[in-house]
Design a binder for these strands. Sequence first.
RNA 1: GGUCGGAUGGCCGAGUGGCUAGGCAGAGGUCUGCAAAACCUCGUACAGCGGUUCGAAUCCGCUUUCGACCUCCA
Length: 494
Amino acid sequence: MFSSNSKLFLYNSLSRQKEEFIPLNEGKVGMYVCGPTVYSDVHLGNCRTFISFDVIYRYLTFLGYKVRYVRNITDVGHMLDDGEDRMSKGARIDQLEPMEVAQKYSNGFHDVMRVFNVLSPSIEPRATGHIPEQIEMVEQILENGLAYERNGSVYFDTLKFAEKTNQYGVLSGRIIDDLIAESRDNLKNQSEKNHPSDFAIWMKASDEHLMRWNSPWSVGFPGWHLECSAMSTKYLGEKFDIHGGGNDLKFPHHENEIAQNVGACGHQPATYWLHTNMLLMNGKKMSKSDGNTISPKELFEGDSVHVTKGYSPMTVRFFMLQSHYRSPNDLTDDGLQAGEKAFRRILEAIKSLNKIQGSSEQGSMDDKIDNLISLAWEDMNDDFNVPKALSRVFELVTIINTLKENKSETISVLSLDRCKKFFNDFIFNVLGLADDTVEGHGPMDGLMDIILKIRKQAREQKDWNTSDLIRNGLNDLGITVKDGKENTEWIINN
RNA sequence: GGUCGGAUGGCCGAGUGGCUAGGCAGAGGUCUGCAAAACCUCGUACAGCGGUUCGAAUCCGCUUUCGACCUCCA
């Protein structure tokens, strides 16, 4: 548990400004994040969003909140242009049952989340597991007169909603007057909808449609915004604290979600709406269609024209954390290389921490260290400003290295412990990073001890041939030998 | 066309009305048998043009330009 005099502020997409975080129920947080649609392999952009919210989840937990984190899996309902359910299209391509497709890609998604060290949410509900709840919500919206049935399908009446509540477009800045004005010109081209901006909350299934359920209106399937409204309400209540997702979901997904919740319950669901920005690659949005994409696996293995080598999951996670969650994150090979080195410096400094002796009296670096630690936590309280907090970490790294090398600077035992705790809390617990450098594996450590002992003896006898033979040989194997003042360290290069 | 958000030093990336993060790369130095590592020092950047102000990269306007969304998207 961490206490600070600074309060947590977060940027609310609804008000477009930072607001103090005040949970509805003291000490508890309800957070809903829109999860993936499991019809294909997880996209690296998804990973960024879920890593961002993972840090938010971890930090809220670290602050002492009891967090119920709900992140759904959408396995039904998203429509294609031709009206075919996206899940069944995936099924046709893969020659699998729809639920088999969903299971396959759910598994893949979970695997990737695991290697990125993303914590599981408290609840991970599936859309197909909540059909009755969604039907109920459609009924409520119909009762409230904000939807209409047409040939077995039910559509949300955005015009009526806009006129009645004046709320449609609050998130995305869309203007109701424009919406209403549009209605005159768009009478042509109308299918079943009264207005182009109306959206389906229940769809009648066509004959070849594989995923289908009984409902009061038809055998069909729920509309593609409804599952989030229904499941967030079920597990977090009609009102909860935080709703998150990628900013490409603002419109129409979240806008329609709000409409549905207001339409069903009379008020919108979340106090704070948080949106993460996009992951770019080489300055452009990642997109499969124009080849500007890389899968997590390709990135880890270096199996892509976009990277010169593979980067470990923790390197990628660190790289993503170097930009703020509300800023675009531009993935480049240069950037990853810089991130890899920077991350290693932090890991090395953490190891160095155990080699530093603290003094019983006040140390020369104590104040600086204590100050940087509290500044880092203040940064986190300022809308989870991880990059800024990391800048404090690097200043701490410099101090740690100084303490290690320079005996004229000192640290007290108290500050040293505080520093160790900070690195453990912040780097590992809150940022969810881990040391994934491949070392310390059983016999390897002992082996290296022996080799380096031999080299030490050679050096003491000024037998540079032998000592360089060892160093160069290890280097060829991808192991860098680092001679310090007192002892020699080694590291496996990636 | 509409909505929203950007343009920061070689690259990445925070931030703020005056105290001018941080990382990577680069230069010099310390250390070292040499090298690496580590440490120290250095670089004064905020698209352009106006305006507000004692003072703006930070606020306002315009221009240029980039991106996201408006259709499935994290």
